[in-house]
Amino acid sequence: MVKNAINRIYLFIIFLFLYAPIMVLIVFSFNNSKSRSHWNGFTLRWYIELFQDPVIKKALFYTIAIALLSSLIATIVGTIAAIGIHSFNDWKKTLILNINYIPILNPDIVTGVSLMILFIFARIKLGFWTMLLAHITFNIPYVILSVLPKLKQLNSHLYEAALDLGATPLYAFFKVILPEIRPGIVTGALLAFTLSVDDFVISFFNTSSGVTNLSITIFSMARTGINPKINALSTIMFLTILILLFIVNIRTSKEVKEEKAK
């Protein structure tokens, strides 16, 4: 009993450490003064200012536009590529997978500067399109790694069974292969979207001052000093993540249950 209590206290302290800073941010986002230490009454003025700030509005637009476009393109290219890679074998597959791992394992800062060098070397002006290309590049590997296990689990005869029953290769792909690997595709797409929304380092090196995402905006605001608008932004982002993660968790736990039912 005593041990159990100690365990719970220990976990509580760890969670306090993890959540206290976030909670302080959230609480002070409603504080009616610029102070981060004294409570001056409840206000929503930072939220209103946040939504009226043209820089933040623009950054939000770019963040979502880039996340949507890059995750969509990465999901399509990655899924098709995964099917192609799956039918490779021997050393070629190992080589392709190892190169595919580079953006995941390489430090973000190296990925960021290497792409920046490429764009400048190729005389492409940094901005929206370079940032989009960079995001697609680091998103595809995650999509491939989410889809490949599903392809491996796939009964290799499934495709043949569809052909056997009269389906053309294209019909078999859309009616059989795609639905069977859909969980992997959805996971990959969600992962790509979140990584894109969250990215700072790679975006930082591959855009111009006119086109910034939220992370870059937060970085430059935090460098110049404390700003209660960031607190308001934190609260909104925290809640968004909370909701998104809930959806993903429900989805995966449903999948686990289905697996168990087999």
Binding site: L18, S37, S234
Partner: peptide, 29 residues
């Protein structure tokens, strides 16, 4: 409980760092 561990990880990295900025500064929390 596991979910509670994962949750902050998905919070924007810069915001998590910024949170400590406001806690640690000279007239901070």
């Amino acid at each position: 409980l596991l979910f509670l561990f994962v949750l902050p990880m998905w919070m924007n990295f810069l915001l998590r760092t910024y949170a400590w900025l406001t806690l640690l500064e000279k007239n901070g929390f």
